[in-house]
């Protein structure tokens, strides 16, 4: 008889790994990314590719320089790259996604210890840095199918930046949205590559919930609290639905506010996190100087995550509350 392996129990593990989880997230992101490529053309696909490749390269280089085990096989760098690319306009010069990947992978993720150790969402932080550093390049919004060459004007505005049309007819005041809800739902509007197609983002989000990669609590609390506040403020169901479908709300709620490393692990904490994001997004969009507030809301809530986890931890089964020592 050969030697026996000795290990502490349990001797069985669930058929799951970090790479499998990341692969599931990638699959969930692909429909929305593909929709972005259809609307914004080969240029969008190229931006996504540059992001993904540079994220992988930066991750690999970091691990080599830091003399740590290689981690590109956990696929998390691909998720970061994909998310970053989906949060950029299709027309950005290619050095911007490279700089963004550097910020996301090197500064936000690896300098804090790599996967699971970063306190801020890498893709969101990179997007915010790029937005503030390269504001002109980051605010060019092309119209869907601009690459087909049949449009009169190539650039337009995003659903959030575009002015609503006010007019009076027969003494009644009307307010018209720049895009129809159908256009908003299918994503035929200006915007970042991966944020416009609500249908595919919801599809991907539901896939993650069904495969139990994410909990429904965060997106429901995020979207729900934002929608509730918007409805109370505007009194219009139409404007509420428009607000939910517009900008980065859905990609943020399903894919960024559910990032493991930077959001709470407790069930209650996920709800608190979602509500916090929804409230901050509403405040920035309604009263702030930026048209969009999803990125800032998630980043701000990322900073509160350790406190939320601590304050929302369940009382262990049978624990005596009084015995603090």
């Amino acid at each position: 008889m050969k030697g026996l392996y000795i290990s502490p129990s349990p001797h069985r593990t669930d058929n799951i790994s970090t790479a499998k989880i990341m692969l599931t997230v990638i699959i969930a992101l692909l429909p929305a990314a593909a929709a972005g490529c259809v609307f914004f053309g080969p240029r969008a696909a190229a931006v996504l590719a540059v992001c993904v490749i540079s994220c992988i390269v930066f991750e690999a280089l970091c691990r080599i320089v830091m003399k740590k085990p290689q981690t590109i096989s956990d696929l998390s760098a691909i998720v970061t790259g994909l998310l970053l690319g989906m949060n950029l306009p299709a027309t950005v010069p290619f050095y911007i996604p490279v700089i963004g990947s550097f910020i996301a992978i090197v500064i936000v993720k690896q300098l804090f210890g790599g996967i699971g150790q970063n306190f801020a969402n890498p893709a969101i932080t990179a997007r915010i840095v790029l937005m503030l550093s390269f504001t002109p390049q980051m605010s060019v919004w092309v119209k869907p199918y601009w690459y087909s060459g049949t449009l009169d004007a190539v650039t337009g505005a995003t659903p959030l930046a575009e002015k609503w049309l006010y007019y009076t007819e027969n003494g009644v005041n009307y307010k018209m949205a720049p895009f129809t809800l159908s256009e908003m739902f299918w994503g035929e509007t200006g915007g970042c590559i991966g944020e416009t197609c609500a249908a595919m983002l919801i599809l991907g989000g539901l896939f993650l919930i069904i495969t139990k990669v994410i909990s429904a609590a965060t997106p429901v609390a995020f979207i729900g609290s934002f929608a509730l506040l918007t409805f109370i403020y505007t009194g219009s169901l139409n404007e509420t639905v428009y607000g939910v479908l517009a900008g980065g709300l859905l990609i943020g709620a399903f894919f960024m506010a559910t990032d493991y490393a930077t959001t709470p692990v407790t069930a209650k904490g996920k709800v608190v996190f979602g509500i916090g994001c929804g409230v901050i997004t509403f405040i920035i969009r309604t009263f702030g100087s930026f048209p969009e507030g999803v990125s800032f809301s998630i980043l701000l809530m990322n900073l509160l995550t350790p406190y939320i986890d601590r304050l929302t931890a369940a009382v262990p089964f049978g624990a005596k509350k009084s015995s603090k020592n």
Binding site: T13, T18, I21, T71, I115, Y260
Partner: peptide, 10 residues
């Protein structure tokens, strides 16, 4: 199985 970093999945 080989141990990798905690991803805080909860």
């Amino acid at each position: 199985p080989e141990t990798t970093a905690c991803i805080r999945c909860g």
